[in-house]
Design a protein around this nucleic acid. Structure first.
Lengths: 190, 190
DNA sequence: CCTCGATCTTGACAACGTAAACATCTCTGT
DNA sequence: ACAGAGATGTTTACGTTGTCAAGATCGAGG
């Protein structure tokens, strides 16, 4: 009945639901935040029945893992560019990290929170490892000394903490000042 | 009927449910983590009906606000001691912050996450402000220059980021190494 | 053409937060 | 002393969520 040659007709069994669900989930996430991100809401957004996601992504944890993995992938490409275009990679990476968090607050929260995510989903561990590999290769040489690792952890912790404090609106006004934050992101060598 | 002079008899209408609920909530939190913390589970833990919390704490957000506020209060006293007993207050405060997060992971997550908490509950804003006041008074003099604020934000972000990354188990094994973390907490002046 | 398997829908269930009606206990005014 | 009033818990109920089982629908291969 539905004309087969119409490309925009929904592909009979809806085509690839998985991608559609991830897209719908991101739409819900940006509209209603993390609290409004439910499996049924995503199904509604995608225009399918509430149990349709079962065959596509398994369960809620599966959908969230896919969504977070796509977030890690995007963060990876963003930081790849930032590292290549700067002479102070650590600072540039930190700034890029924080910028990403501010651009996609709910997604950032989802990606790094343990409670709603199941940390050992394959899609997640792959995306996380890809990001880490990119970071390692972007750093000066491939040093693995304790000194280097401490510096890397320090930079990551600083960027992550600032991002989380900003996204969670935990900073008092005097500290959330743009100038102060810029001073932190701009780097120590200013 | 119930003998009035028996001190251990439940105080007729259960005494002060609010404190009992907060205590029960913390027990549930430590046993089942943030994901298992539901109003009904807390009511069960406290031995009252599932709708009893309504009169004591209003709703779920009210209970979580009380619980988080008690967490902020405990963090405040811990950091107060740490600051007084050290000559490098910023480092000592950071170490204390991270130690608190590791000692009470679920509580720490609850305290600093925006989604489940309602940020403007009176109990919460009071506890948060008390913590900030304590920190301010613990810092050298009462300097308010942009330089000082940037240093304060930097230290906080680093401690917060490290704590969150640890609590959320986001660090790869090579960075979660105890020596590396100690190097970060021990301070730059080692 | 017609069956098979993948895919989606429907219906159901338990657990959750919240609300209203009801019960029970404490307290206060006279 | 005692009756009403108000605070404090319980019961019942409703809508939402995640998950499961059974049925419907469609594409593809024999």
């Amino acid at each position: 009945m539905t004309v087969k040659s119409d490309a925009r007709a929904r592909p009979y069994h809806h085509g690839n639901l998985k991608a559609a669900l991830v897209a719908a989930a991101e739409a819900v996430l940006e509209r209603d935040g993390l609290a409004g991100l439910s499996l049924r809401a995503v199904a509604r957004e995608a225009g399918v029945s509430h149990a349709a996601p079962r065959h596509a992504v398994g369960d809620l944890a599966g959908l969230l893992a896919e969504l977070a993995a796509s977030g890690f992938e995007r963060l990876r490409t963003a930081m790849q560019c930032a590292a290549a275009a700067s002479e102070a990679p650590l600072d540039a990476l930190g700034a890029c990290y924080v910028r990403f968090a501010l651009a996609h607050p709910a997604l950032f929260q989802l990606m790094f929170r343990q409670e709603r995510l199941e940390a050992d989903r394959p899609a997640l561990v792959a995306a996380r490892r890809a990001l880490l590999d990119t970071l390692r290769s972007a750093l000066p040489d491939g040093q693995t000394g304790e000194r280097t690792r401490a510096a890397m952890l320090s930079a990551w912790a600083q960027a992550h903490g600032l991002a989380m404090l900003l996204v969670d609106r935990q900073l008092p006004p005097e500290l959330a000042d743009a100038a102060v934050i810029e001073a932190l992101l701009g780097g120590v060598h200013a």
